[in-house]
Design a binder for these strands. Sequence first.
DNA 1: TAGTCAATAGTTGTCCTACAACTAGTCTTG
DNA 2: CAAGACTAGTTGTAGGACAACTATTGACTA
Lengths: 245, 245
Amino acid sequence: MNTPADQFGGRASLTRRISDDIRRRILAKEWAPGEKIHSESELSTNYKVSRVTVRTALKTLEYQGLVDIRHGSGTYVNNFGRSIPTGLNELRSMSETISELGYEPGMEYKVATIRPATKTEIDKLRLDNADPVLYLERAVLADGKAVAFSYDTINISSLPEEVVEEMKQGSVFASLDTINSRPIRALAEVDAVISKEIGWGDERPANDLFLLLQQVHYAGDGEPLMYSKTYFMEGRFQFLILRTR
Amino acid sequence: MNTPADQFGGRASLTRRISDDIRRRILAKEWAPGEKIHSESELSTNYKVSRVTVRTALKTLEYQGLVDIRHGSGTYVNNFGRSIPTGLNELRSMSETISELGYEPGMEYKVATIRPATKTEIDKLRLDNADPVLYLERAVLADGKAVAFSYDTINISSLPEEVVEEMKQGSVFASLDTINSRPIRALAEVDAVISKEIGWGDERPANDLFLLLQQVHYAGDGEPLMYSKTYFMEGRFQFLILRTR
DNA sequence: TAGTCAATAGTTGTCCTACAACTAGTCTTG
DNA sequence: CAAGACTAGTTGTAGGACAACTATTGACTA
Protein backbone atom coordinates (compact mmCIF):
# COMPACT_ATOMS: atom_id res chain seq x y z
CA MET A 1 0.00 0.00 0.00
CA ASN A 2 1.04 3.56 -0.52
CA THR A 3 -1.69 5.68 0.95
CA PRO A 4 -0.81 9.26 1.92
CA ALA A 5 -1.09 8.32 5.59
CA ASP A 6 1.85 5.97 5.49
CA GLN A 7 4.35 8.67 6.35
CA PHE A 8 3.00 8.62 9.92
CA GLY A 9 1.69 5.16 10.70
CA GLY A 10 -0.50 4.14 13.57
CA ARG A 11 -4.22 3.63 13.34
CA ALA A 12 -5.51 6.92 14.71
CA SER A 13 -7.58 8.94 12.28
CA LEU A 14 -5.75 10.87 9.58
CA THR A 15 -7.01 14.14 11.03
CA ARG A 16 -5.70 13.19 14.45
CA ARG A 17 -2.26 12.34 13.12
CA ILE A 18 -1.99 15.59 11.14
CA SER A 19 -3.22 17.55 14.16
CA ASP A 20 -0.65 15.91 16.44
CA ASP A 21 2.13 16.59 13.96
CA ILE A 22 1.32 20.28 13.52
CA ARG A 23 1.04 20.54 17.29
CA ARG A 24 4.49 19.02 17.61
CA ARG A 25 5.91 21.47 15.08
CA ILE A 26 4.38 24.43 16.92
CA LEU A 27 5.73 23.28 20.28
CA ALA A 28 9.11 22.77 18.61
CA LYS A 29 9.02 26.50 17.82
CA GLU A 30 8.99 26.01 14.08
CA TRP A 31 6.88 29.17 14.07
CA ALA A 32 7.27 31.94 16.63
CA PRO A 33 4.28 32.99 18.73
CA GLY A 34 2.14 35.46 16.80
CA GLU A 35 3.56 34.24 13.51
CA LYS A 36 1.39 33.05 10.64
CA ILE A 37 1.81 29.38 9.82
CA HIS A 38 1.51 27.90 6.34
CA SER A 39 -1.80 28.23 4.58
CA GLU A 40 -4.27 25.36 4.52
CA SER A 41 -3.64 24.67 0.84
CA GLU A 42 0.11 24.63 1.39
CA LEU A 43 -0.19 22.25 4.36
CA SER A 44 -2.55 19.98 2.45
CA THR A 45 -0.17 19.63 -0.49
CA ASN A 46 2.81 19.10 1.82
CA TYR A 47 1.05 16.46 3.91
CA LYS A 48 -0.52 15.00 0.75
CA VAL A 49 -4.00 15.07 2.32
CA SER A 50 -7.12 17.00 1.42
CA ARG A 51 -7.76 20.51 2.64
CA VAL A 52 -10.75 19.19 4.61
CA THR A 53 -8.43 17.06 6.74
CA VAL A 54 -6.02 19.94 7.38
CA ARG A 55 -8.91 22.25 8.28
CA THR A 56 -10.32 19.77 10.79
CA ALA A 57 -6.88 19.31 12.33
CA LEU A 58 -6.36 23.08 12.64
CA LYS A 59 -9.82 23.44 14.21
CA THR A 60 -8.70 20.98 16.89
CA LEU A 61 -5.60 23.03 17.60
CA GLU A 62 -7.71 26.18 17.70
CA TYR A 63 -9.96 24.60 20.28
CA GLN A 64 -6.90 23.61 22.31
CA GLY A 65 -5.88 27.26 22.25
CA LEU A 66 -2.70 26.71 20.31
CA VAL A 67 -3.60 28.71 17.23
CA ASP A 68 -5.99 31.40 16.13
CA ILE A 69 -7.70 31.04 12.75
CA ARG A 70 -8.68 34.34 11.12
CA HIS A 71 -11.03 34.40 8.14
CA GLY A 72 -9.36 35.81 5.07
CA SER A 73 -6.04 36.25 6.78
CA GLY A 74 -4.46 33.05 8.02
CA THR A 75 -3.72 30.84 11.00
CA TYR A 76 -1.56 32.35 13.75
CA VAL A 77 0.33 30.76 16.61
CA ASN A 78 -0.96 32.02 19.94
CA ASN A 79 1.56 33.38 22.39
CA PHE A 80 0.56 31.67 25.59
CA GLY A 81 4.11 30.45 26.00
CA ARG A 82 4.59 26.99 27.43
CA SER A 83 1.45 27.21 29.52
CA ILE A 84 -1.18 25.64 27.32
CA PRO A 85 0.39 22.30 26.49
CA THR A 86 0.47 21.41 30.18
CA GLY A 87 -3.05 22.58 30.87
CA LEU A 88 -5.93 20.71 32.44
CA ASN A 89 -8.02 20.70 29.28
CA GLU A 90 -6.07 17.87 27.74
CA LEU A 91 -6.41 14.54 29.44
CA ARG A 92 -3.02 13.16 30.36
CA SER A 93 -1.83 10.80 33.02
CA MET A 94 -0.06 12.32 36.00
CA SER A 95 3.21 10.79 34.86
CA GLU A 96 2.94 12.25 31.37
CA THR A 97 2.19 15.70 32.76
CA ILE A 98 5.08 15.56 35.19
CA SER A 99 7.60 14.53 32.58
CA GLU A 100 6.31 17.20 30.18
CA LEU A 101 7.14 19.71 32.91
CA GLY A 102 10.68 18.39 32.96
CA TYR A 103 10.64 16.29 36.14
CA GLU A 104 11.19 12.59 36.69
CA PRO A 105 7.80 11.04 37.49
CA GLY A 106 7.28 8.39 40.15
CA MET A 107 4.67 6.65 42.27
CA GLU A 108 4.77 5.39 45.83
CA TYR A 109 2.15 2.74 46.54
CA LYS A 110 0.66 2.67 50.01
CA VAL A 111 -2.53 0.64 49.45
CA ALA A 112 -3.53 -1.64 46.54
CA THR A 113 -6.45 -3.92 47.32
CA ILE A 114 -9.53 -5.37 45.74
CA ARG A 115 -12.62 -4.69 47.84
CA PRO A 116 -16.40 -4.17 47.40
CA ALA A 117 -17.47 -0.79 46.04
CA THR A 118 -18.87 1.86 48.34
CA LYS A 119 -22.10 3.72 47.71
CA THR A 120 -20.36 6.74 46.17
CA GLU A 121 -18.29 4.50 43.92
CA ILE A 122 -21.35 2.55 42.74
CA ASP A 123 -22.90 5.87 41.82
CA LYS A 124 -19.87 7.42 40.12
CA LEU A 125 -18.83 4.26 38.25
CA ARG A 126 -22.42 3.26 37.42
CA LEU A 127 -22.03 -0.18 38.97
CA ASP A 128 -25.15 -2.29 39.47
CA ASN A 129 -24.40 -3.79 42.84
CA ALA A 130 -21.47 -4.09 45.23
CA ASP A 131 -19.07 -5.24 42.51
CA PRO A 132 -15.46 -5.55 43.57
CA VAL A 133 -13.21 -2.64 42.64
CA LEU A 134 -9.48 -2.01 42.71
CA TYR A 135 -8.64 0.59 45.32
CA LEU A 136 -5.29 2.42 45.34
CA GLU A 137 -3.67 4.93 47.64
CA ARG A 138 -0.53 6.46 46.21
CA ALA A 139 1.83 9.37 46.53
CA VAL A 140 2.66 11.07 43.24
CA LEU A 141 6.33 11.94 42.98
CA ALA A 142 8.24 14.48 40.90
CA ASP A 143 12.00 14.09 41.12
CA GLY A 144 11.42 11.85 44.15
CA LYS A 145 9.46 14.51 45.99
CA ALA A 146 5.75 14.04 46.76
CA VAL A 147 3.54 16.56 44.97
CA ALA A 148 0.15 14.93 45.51
CA PHE A 149 -1.71 12.10 47.23
CA SER A 150 -4.15 10.11 45.13
CA TYR A 151 -7.05 7.88 46.18
CA ASP A 152 -8.25 5.94 43.15
CA THR A 153 -11.03 3.45 42.52
CA ILE A 154 -10.95 1.43 39.30
CA ASN A 155 -13.89 -0.34 37.71
CA ILE A 156 -12.48 -3.83 37.05
CA SER A 157 -15.79 -5.50 36.10
CA SER A 158 -14.76 -5.84 32.45
CA LEU A 159 -11.00 -6.14 32.81
CA PRO A 160 -8.94 -9.33 32.46
CA GLU A 161 -7.27 -10.46 35.69
CA GLU A 162 -3.67 -10.05 34.56
CA VAL A 163 -4.29 -6.40 33.70
CA VAL A 164 -5.72 -5.82 37.18
CA GLU A 165 -2.63 -7.43 38.74
CA GLU A 166 -0.41 -5.20 36.63
CA MET A 167 -2.23 -2.09 37.87
CA LYS A 168 -1.37 -2.88 41.47
CA GLN A 169 2.18 -1.81 40.77
CA GLY A 170 2.51 0.07 37.50
CA SER A 171 0.76 2.95 35.75
CA VAL A 172 -2.99 2.53 35.47
CA PHE A 173 -3.12 4.33 32.15
CA ALA A 174 -0.34 2.19 30.70
CA SER A 175 -2.15 -1.01 31.74
CA LEU A 176 -5.40 0.17 30.16
CA ASP A 177 -3.45 0.98 27.02
CA THR A 178 -2.38 -2.64 26.60
CA ILE A 179 -6.02 -3.67 26.16
CA ASN A 180 -6.72 -0.54 24.13
CA SER A 181 -9.27 0.99 26.50
CA ARG A 182 -7.49 4.14 27.65
CA PRO A 183 -9.90 6.80 28.90
CA ILE A 184 -10.66 9.48 26.34
CA ARG A 185 -12.63 11.86 28.54
CA ALA A 186 -12.75 12.91 32.16
CA LEU A 187 -15.06 15.17 34.11
CA ALA A 188 -13.21 16.87 36.92
CA GLU A 189 -14.37 18.92 39.88
CA VAL A 190 -11.98 21.26 41.69
CA ASP A 191 -12.16 22.13 45.38
CA ALA A 192 -10.00 23.71 48.05
CA VAL A 193 -9.65 21.47 51.10
CA ILE A 194 -8.22 21.71 54.61
CA SER A 195 -7.86 18.29 56.22
CA LYS A 196 -5.60 16.44 58.61
CA GLU A 197 -6.85 13.10 57.22
CA ILE A 198 -5.20 13.50 53.84
CA GLY A 199 -1.72 12.29 52.96
CA TRP A 200 1.10 10.72 54.94
CA GLY A 201 4.83 11.01 55.56
CA ASP A 202 6.87 14.05 56.44
CA GLU A 203 6.17 15.85 53.18
CA ARG A 204 2.60 16.70 54.16
CA PRO A 205 1.96 20.47 54.23
CA ALA A 206 1.96 21.98 57.69
CA ASN A 207 -1.23 23.97 57.10
CA ASP A 208 -3.19 20.88 55.86
CA LEU A 209 -4.08 22.76 52.66
CA PHE A 210 -4.80 20.85 49.44
CA LEU A 211 -6.25 21.44 46.02
CA LEU A 212 -8.59 18.54 45.33
CA LEU A 213 -9.10 17.26 41.80
CA GLN A 214 -12.01 14.86 41.89
CA GLN A 215 -12.59 13.16 38.58
CA VAL A 216 -14.30 10.35 36.72
CA HIS A 217 -12.56 8.91 33.66
CA TYR A 218 -14.63 7.55 30.81
CA ALA A 219 -13.80 5.06 28.06
CA GLY A 220 -14.58 5.54 24.40
CA ASP A 221 -17.93 3.81 24.76
CA GLY A 222 -18.97 6.14 27.58
CA GLU A 223 -18.39 3.61 30.36
CA PRO A 224 -16.85 5.00 33.56
CA LEU A 225 -13.42 3.48 34.15
CA MET A 226 -11.96 5.19 37.20
CA TYR A 227 -13.01 7.50 40.00
CA SER A 228 -10.16 9.31 41.62
CA LYS A 229 -9.57 11.98 44.22
CA THR A 230 -6.15 13.57 43.92
CA TYR A 231 -5.02 16.02 46.59
CA PHE A 232 -2.32 18.37 45.31
CA MET A 233 -0.07 20.20 47.69
CA GLU A 234 -0.37 23.91 47.03
CA GLY A 235 2.58 25.48 45.26
CA ARG A 236 4.12 22.25 43.97
CA PHE A 237 2.01 22.12 40.86
CA GLN A 238 0.37 24.59 38.54
CA PHE A 239 -3.15 24.18 37.22
CA LEU A 240 -4.00 25.91 34.00
CA ILE A 241 -7.32 26.00 32.23
CA LEU A 242 -7.98 27.44 28.82
CA ARG A 243 -11.44 28.92 28.50
CA THR A 244 -12.90 29.70 25.09
CA ARG A 245 -16.08 30.98 23.56
CA MET B 1 -31.89 38.06 0.16
CA ASN B 2 -32.80 34.54 0.91
CA THR B 3 -29.60 32.80 1.89
CA PRO B 4 -29.84 29.60 3.92
CA ALA B 5 -28.49 31.43 6.98
CA ASP B 6 -31.44 33.77 7.21
CA GLN B 7 -33.42 31.50 9.45
CA PHE B 8 -31.00 32.38 12.28
CA GLY B 9 -29.65 35.88 11.72
CA GLY B 10 -26.70 37.46 13.42
CA ARG B 11 -23.26 37.80 11.90
CA ALA B 12 -21.50 34.89 13.58
CA SER B 13 -20.19 32.25 11.22
CA LEU B 14 -22.65 29.77 9.78
CA THR B 15 -20.89 26.93 11.55
CA ARG B 16 -21.13 28.78 14.85
CA ARG B 17 -24.87 29.39 14.45
CA ILE B 18 -25.58 25.79 13.52
CA SER B 19 -23.43 24.58 16.41
CA ASP B 20 -25.25 26.84 18.87
CA ASP B 21 -28.62 25.67 17.62
CA ILE B 22 -27.84 21.95 17.89
CA ARG B 23 -26.39 22.64 21.35
CA ARG B 24 -29.65 24.34 22.31
CA ARG B 25 -31.68 21.38 21.05
CA ILE B 26 -29.54 18.93 23.00
CA LEU B 27 -29.83 20.94 26.22
CA ALA B 28 -33.59 21.17 25.58
CA LYS B 29 -33.60 17.36 25.79
CA GLU B 30 -34.72 16.88 22.20
CA TRP B 31 -32.62 13.74 22.34
CA ALA B 32 -32.07 11.72 25.49
CA PRO B 33 -28.53 11.09 26.80
CA GLY B 34 -27.00 8.14 24.98
CA GLU B 35 -29.40 8.54 22.09
CA LYS B 36 -28.26 8.89 18.49
CA ILE B 37 -29.06 12.25 16.94
CA HIS B 38 -29.90 12.81 13.27
CA SER B 39 -27.26 11.90 10.72
CA GLU B 40 -25.04 14.57 9.20
CA SER B 41 -26.81 14.33 5.83
CA GLU B 42 -30.21 14.67 7.47
CA LEU B 43 -29.11 17.69 9.52
CA SER B 44 -27.52 19.31 6.47
CA THR B 45 -30.72 19.03 4.40
CA ASN B 46 -32.85 20.26 7.33
CA TYR B 47 -30.64 23.26 8.05
CA LYS B 48 -30.17 23.80 4.29
CA VAL B 49 -26.38 23.95 4.69
CA SER B 50 -23.62 21.71 3.40
CA ARG B 51 -22.56 18.58 5.23
CA VAL B 52 -19.12 20.18 5.79
CA THR B 53 -20.72 22.92 7.88
CA VAL B 54 -22.73 20.44 9.92
CA ARG B 55 -19.62 18.31 10.47
CA THR B 56 -17.61 21.28 11.71
CA ALA B 57 -20.44 22.26 14.05
CA LEU B 58 -20.68 18.72 15.44
CA LYS B 59 -16.91 18.63 15.93
CA THR B 60 -17.21 21.73 18.09
CA LEU B 61 -19.87 20.05 20.22
CA GLU B 62 -17.62 17.00 20.50
CA TYR B 63 -14.77 19.19 21.81
CA GLN B 64 -17.20 20.66 24.33
CA GLY B 65 -18.01 17.12 25.45
CA LEU B 66 -21.66 17.31 24.52
CA VAL B 67 -21.67 14.54 21.92
CA ASP B 68 -19.63 11.56 20.85
CA ILE B 69 -19.04 11.00 17.13
CA ARG B 70 -18.48 7.36 16.15
CA HIS B 71 -17.14 6.47 12.73
CA GLY B 72 -19.60 4.43 10.73
CA SER B 73 -22.23 4.54 13.44
CA GLY B 74 -23.49 8.01 14.26
CA THR B 75 -23.38 10.91 16.68
CA TYR B 76 -24.54 10.23 20.23
CA VAL B 77 -25.52 12.56 23.06
CA ASN B 78 -23.22 12.15 26.05
CA ASN B 79 -24.80 11.59 29.41
CA PHE B 80 -22.95 14.05 31.60
CA GLY B 81 -26.26 15.49 32.67
CA ARG B 82 -26.39 19.22 33.26
CA SER B 83 -22.76 19.36 34.34
CA ILE B 84 -20.98 20.22 31.14
CA PRO B 85 -22.87 23.31 30.05
CA THR B 86 -21.88 25.07 33.27
CA GLY B 87 -18.25 24.01 33.16
CA LEU B 88 -15.11 26.11 33.25
CA ASN B 89 -14.11 25.28 29.69
CA GLU B 90 -16.57 27.72 28.22
CA LEU B 91 -15.81 31.34 28.87
CA ARG B 92 -18.81 33.04 30.45
CA SER B 93 -19.18 36.03 32.69
CA MET B 94 -19.83 35.32 36.36
CA SER B 95 -23.37 36.67 35.99
CA GLU B 96 -24.14 34.39 33.06
CA THR B 97 -22.86 31.35 34.92
CA ILE B 98 -24.82 32.18 38.04
CA SER B 99 -28.09 32.65 36.20
CA GLU B 100 -27.51 29.42 34.23
CA LEU B 101 -27.32 27.69 37.60
CA GLY B 102 -30.72 29.12 38.45
CA TYR B 103 -29.74 31.92 40.84
CA GLU B 104 -30.26 35.65 40.63
CA PRO B 105 -26.84 37.23 39.91
CA GLY B 106 -25.65 40.44 41.53
CA MET B 107 -22.56 42.54 42.22
CA GLU B 108 -21.61 44.65 45.21
CA TYR B 109 -19.00 47.28 44.40
CA LYS B 110 -16.50 48.15 47.08
CA VAL B 111 -13.74 49.87 45.09
CA ALA B 112 -13.82 51.31 41.55
CA THR B 113 -10.89 53.60 40.80
CA ILE B 114 -8.53 54.51 38.00
CA ARG B 115 -4.91 54.25 39.12
CA PRO B 116 -1.45 53.50 37.65
CA ALA B 117 -0.73 49.84 36.87
CA THR B 118 1.43 47.80 39.18
CA LYS B 119 4.38 45.73 38.03
CA THR B 120 2.36 42.48 37.90
CA GLU B 121 -0.41 44.17 35.96
CA ILE B 122 2.03 45.67 33.43
CA ASP B 123 3.36 42.17 32.89
CA LYS B 124 0.01 40.36 32.67
CA LEU B 125 -1.70 43.01 30.53
CA ARG B 126 1.40 43.64 28.40
CA LEU B 127 1.36 47.38 29.08
CA ASP B 128 4.39 49.43 28.02
CA ASN B 129 4.68 51.72 31.01
CA ALA B 130 2.64 52.72 34.04
CA ASP B 131 -0.53 53.25 32.03
CA PRO B 132 -3.63 53.95 34.09
CA VAL B 133 -5.93 50.98 34.64
CA LEU B 134 -9.40 50.52 36.05
CA TYR B 135 -9.26 48.65 39.35
CA LEU B 136 -12.35 47.02 40.86
CA GLU B 137 -13.05 45.21 44.10
CA ARG B 138 -16.41 43.49 44.13
CA ALA B 139 -18.43 40.84 45.90
CA VAL B 140 -20.17 38.40 43.55
CA LEU B 141 -23.69 37.64 44.70
CA ALA B 142 -26.05 34.74 44.00
CA ASP B 143 -29.57 35.32 45.30
CA GLY B 144 -28.18 38.20 47.35
CA LYS B 145 -25.59 36.02 49.06
CA ALA B 146 -21.87 36.51 48.49
CA VAL B 147 -20.23 33.54 46.75
CA ALA B 148 -16.92 35.13 45.78
CA PHE B 149 -14.73 38.23 46.08
CA SER B 150 -13.17 39.54 42.90
CA TYR B 151 -10.18 41.86 42.41
CA ASP B 152 -10.10 42.96 38.77
CA THR B 153 -7.76 45.12 36.71
CA ILE B 154 -8.95 46.29 33.30
CA ASN B 155 -6.74 47.51 30.47
CA ILE B 156 -8.42 50.78 29.45
CA SER B 157 -5.66 52.04 27.17
CA SER B 158 -7.80 51.52 24.06
CA LEU B 159 -11.26 52.04 25.49
CA PRO B 160 -13.45 55.14 25.06
CA GLU B 161 -14.07 57.08 28.26
CA GLU B 162 -17.82 56.54 28.44
CA VAL B 163 -17.35 52.77 28.37
CA VAL B 164 -14.89 53.00 31.25
CA GLU B 165 -17.37 55.05 33.27
CA GLU B 166 -20.06 52.46 32.57
CA MET B 167 -17.82 49.68 33.89
CA LYS B 168 -17.51 51.36 37.26
CA GLN B 169 -21.04 50.30 38.02
CA GLY B 170 -22.33 47.67 35.59
CA SER B 171 -21.11 44.41 34.12
CA VAL B 172 -17.64 44.59 32.55
CA PHE B 173 -18.49 42.02 29.90
CA ALA B 174 -21.68 43.87 28.93
CA SER B 175 -19.78 47.14 28.55
CA LEU B 176 -17.16 45.50 26.36
CA ASP B 177 -19.97 44.03 24.30
CA THR B 178 -21.26 47.48 23.38
CA ILE B 179 -18.00 48.24 21.56
CA ASN B 180 -17.81 44.69 20.23
CA SER B 181 -14.59 43.67 21.99
CA ARG B 182 -15.79 40.97 24.35
CA PRO B 183 -13.00 38.60 25.40
CA ILE B 184 -12.98 35.34 23.46
CA ARG B 185 -10.32 33.49 25.43
CA ALA B 186 -9.02 33.35 28.97
CA LEU B 187 -6.11 31.55 30.58
CA ALA B 188 -6.91 30.64 34.16
CA GLU B 189 -4.78 29.34 37.00
CA VAL B 190 -6.37 27.60 39.97
CA ASP B 191 -4.99 27.65 43.51
CA ALA B 192 -6.11 26.86 47.02
CA VAL B 193 -5.57 29.78 49.39
CA ILE B 194 -5.80 30.45 53.11
CA SER B 195 -5.77 34.17 53.87
CA LYS B 196 -7.24 36.64 56.31
CA GLU B 197 -6.64 39.49 53.85
CA ILE B 198 -9.27 38.35 51.36
CA GLY B 199 -12.89 39.44 51.37
CA TRP B 200 -14.98 41.56 53.71
CA GLY B 201 -18.29 41.58 55.52
CA ASP B 202 -19.83 38.91 57.72
CA GLU B 203 -20.11 36.35 54.94
CA ARG B 204 -16.40 35.63 54.94
CA PRO B 205 -15.60 31.96 55.69
CA ALA B 206 -14.43 31.32 59.24
CA ASN B 207 -11.52 29.13 58.15
CA ASP B 208 -10.19 31.74 55.66
CA LEU B 209 -10.30 29.11 52.89
CA PHE B 210 -10.72 30.17 49.26
CA LEU B 211 -10.40 28.70 45.80
CA LEU B 212 -8.53 31.26 43.71
CA LEU B 213 -9.23 31.61 40.00
CA GLN B 214 -6.53 33.85 38.59
CA GLN B 215 -7.12 34.68 34.96
CA VAL B 216 -6.21 36.89 32.04
CA HIS B 217 -8.88 37.60 29.45
CA TYR B 218 -7.89 38.15 25.84
CA ALA B 219 -9.65 39.92 22.97
CA GLY B 220 -10.05 38.52 19.50
CA ASP B 221 -6.82 40.16 18.34
CA GLY B 222 -4.86 38.56 21.18
CA GLU B 223 -4.63 41.72 23.28
CA PRO B 224 -5.03 41.22 27.05
CA LEU B 225 -8.16 42.97 28.29
CA MET B 226 -8.49 42.10 31.95
CA TYR B 227 -6.50 40.50 34.76
CA SER B 228 -8.63 39.26 37.59
CA LYS B 229 -8.23 37.32 40.81
CA THR B 230 -11.50 35.84 41.99
CA TYR B 231 -11.62 34.15 45.39
CA PHE B 232 -14.48 31.67 45.65
CA MET B 233 -15.78 30.55 48.99
CA GLU B 234 -15.53 26.78 49.19
CA GLY B 235 -18.84 24.96 48.88
CA ARG B 236 -20.86 27.80 47.39
CA PHE B 237 -19.83 27.10 43.85
CA GLN B 238 -18.94 24.08 41.78
CA PHE B 239 -16.04 24.03 39.35
CA LEU B 240 -16.21 21.51 36.56
CA ILE B 241 -13.62 20.89 33.88
CA LEU B 242 -14.02 18.63 30.90
CA ARG B 243 -10.77 17.00 29.89
CA THR B 244 -10.42 15.34 26.49
CA ARG B 245 -7.83 13.63 24.40
C1' DT C 1 2.44 65.84 0.39
C1' DA C 2 -1.01 63.42 2.66
C1' DG C 3 -5.16 61.03 2.51
C1' DT C 4 -8.77 58.32 0.30
C1' DC C 5 -10.31 54.81 -2.43
C1' DA C 6 -10.23 51.08 -5.90
C1' DA C 7 -8.04 47.06 -7.43
C1' DT C 8 -5.89 42.76 -6.34
C1' DA C 9 -3.70 38.71 -4.62
C1' DG C 10 -3.97 35.61 -0.88
C1' DT C 11 -6.55 33.13 2.76
C1' DT C 12 -10.33 31.08 5.22
C1' DG C 13 -15.52 29.75 4.91
C1' DT C 14 -18.96 27.11 2.57
C1' DC C 15 -20.79 24.20 -1.10
C1' DC C 16 -21.13 20.05 -4.10
C1' DT C 17 -20.21 15.37 -5.41
C1' DA C 18 -18.01 11.20 -4.92
C1' DC C 19 -15.99 7.42 -2.75
C1' DA C 20 -13.43 4.97 1.21
C1' DA C 21 -13.78 3.06 5.84
C1' DC C 22 -16.39 1.54 9.32
C1' DT C 23 -20.67 -0.26 12.07
C1' DA C 24 -24.56 -2.89 13.12
C1' DG C 25 -27.93 -5.50 11.80
C1' DT C 26 -29.96 -9.15 8.40
C1' DC C 27 -29.59 -13.08 5.80
C1' DT C 28 -27.47 -17.26 4.21
C1' DT C 29 -25.31 -21.46 4.83
C1' DG C 30 -23.25 -25.35 6.90
C1' DC D 1 -27.94 -22.93 16.12
C1' DA D 2 -23.56 -20.73 15.09
C1' DA D 3 -20.53 -18.58 11.95
C1' DG D 4 -19.71 -15.99 8.24
C1' DA D 5 -21.21 -13.23 4.04
C1' DC D 6 -23.99 -9.51 2.72
C1' DT D 7 -26.03 -4.92 2.95
C1' DA D 8 -27.85 -0.48 4.17
C1' DG D 9 -26.55 3.38 6.78
C1' DT D 10 -23.08 6.53 8.73
C1' DT D 11 -18.86 8.99 9.39
C1' DG D 12 -14.04 10.04 7.23
C1' DT D 13 -11.45 11.85 3.36
C1' DA D 14 -10.81 13.62 -1.39
C1' DG D 15 -10.96 17.25 -5.02
C1' DG D 16 -12.57 21.18 -7.16
C1' DA D 17 -15.14 25.38 -7.13
C1' DC D 18 -16.69 29.74 -5.59
C1' DA D 19 -18.02 33.18 -1.77
C1' DA D 20 -16.46 36.15 1.91
C1' DC D 21 -12.99 38.38 4.02
C1' DT D 22 -8.13 40.60 4.87
C1' DA D 23 -4.14 43.15 3.92
C1' DT D 24 -1.42 45.32 0.72
C1' DT D 25 -0.47 47.94 -3.30
C1' DG D 26 -1.03 51.62 -6.27
C1' DA D 27 -3.68 55.28 -8.41
C1' DC D 28 -6.13 59.24 -7.75
C1' DT D 29 -7.62 63.40 -5.36
C1' DA D 30 -7.70 67.39 -2.39
